Amino acid sequence: MKFIGYRTLKTGIGASIAMIIAKQLGLQYAVSAGIITILSIQNTKKQSAKIAIQRIASFLIALLIASILFKIIGYYAVTFGIFLLIFIPVLVRFKLEQGIVVSSVLTTHLLVEKSTSMFWVWNELLLMLIGVSVALVLNLYMPSIEGQIKKDQAYIEEKMKEILVQMAKALKENYNSIGEQELFNNLKDRLYTARNNAYQNLNNYFLLDASYYVQYMEMRIQQFDTIKRMKEHFKKFFMTYEQTIMIADFTEQVAHSLYEENTCEQLIKDINELRENFRRMSLPVTREEFENRAMLFQFLNDMEQFLRIKNEFKQNPS
């Protein structure tokens, strides 16, 4: 078990560096630079850059509002209260909420010093710039999580294969529940964890398009939703026919064709051929046969949807 996480390590180092730089430049309230760095360290590069821009913009707004109020009313606690009543709604209006706390703290320095002279304005601006800059520099390197994403891919494909094999077996052996709720739950949890990892990976690149893994995980989640619908059909299957065995064999074929690069075009053609074969077969004789075959056709329709989701993904690469 890791005692200190990577982000914690960067936060500790960054806060120290920011305070040292501020102190060496002779800035007052140098500790604030360290606090700003702590608040600006994020999980991804894009988050860090976005917050840096928001905080700098919010400070400039705070400086404008505070300067006007302090000159008109004076350097009193009530003035700071009025400042917050104006400042907070303005930042919310412009979606700069990330800068509320930091800019308010820096504004208190002006209140304490009872001055908005260039010396103190420059002092506070430098504290902000040092704090966010150190955070940005430390966030330029993020440990790659592509290895974990590839493991997620392998796990997802293997578990989907396992589910489809179980379905094929259930069709052949004529039982109406594949009894794999835990497997479905585990797959669902891993899918959403993997999607979060994919988005985190995406947000660690500024210029490179890293959206492939996001699209891949979204595709697999859509397929998972389709598999859940297919699973519901098992509650209504109660008889085994020639068509059932054919669909079971095809389901097993799909299970062994889930690898990432498969476009599923041939499998979609196979489904159409399967339907043509069904049309040439004799019609159901009893009501039970009719209902059961209807469920088989719905299962096959969902299987086609499952394959088309993958086909569309491969036809529209990132």
Rank of each mutant, 00 (worst) to 15 (best):
N139A: 09
M160N: 11
L207A: 14
D209Q: 07
N262T: 04
E157W: 07
K150P: 02
M217C: 11
F238P: 00
I268P: 00
Y216R: 12
L208P: 06
L258G: 05
K150T: 12
F237P: 03
Q148N: 13
M217R: 04
Q253M: 14
I271Q: 04
F184L: 09
L191Y: 02
A248F: 01
L191D: 01
N196L: 15
A170P: 03
K159V: 09
M219T: 15
Q215S: 15
F234H: 03
V214P: 01
E218G: 07
E265Q: 14
H233M: 08
Y155V: 09
I149G: 03
I149F: 05
L138D: 00
L164W: 02
T244Y: 04
F224P: 10
D249L: 07
L140A: 13
P143R: 07
F224L: 08
K236I: 01
H256V: 10
N201F: 12
I145N: 12
D189F: 05
D225W: 09
I271Y: 05
M219P: 00
Y192L: 11
F206V: 15
Y212P: 02
S177L: 05
L207T: 12
D209L: 04
N174S: 13
R275M: 10
Q243P: 01
M160L: 09
A198H: 00
A210I: 05
I271R: 04
M230D: 03
D249V: 03
T226Q: 11
I156S: 02
V254G: 02
F206A: 14
Y199T: 11
R229Q: 12
I178Q: 00
Q153H: 10
L207I: 15
D225K: 10
Y216T: 01
N203L: 13
I149H: 04
K172I: 06
L183P: 02
M217Y: 12
I247C: 03
Y259Q: 11
Q253N: 13
Y259E: 08
R220L: 08
Y155M: 10
D249A: 11
E242A: 11
I247W: 03
K159Q: 14
Q266R: 10
F250S: 03
Q215W: 15
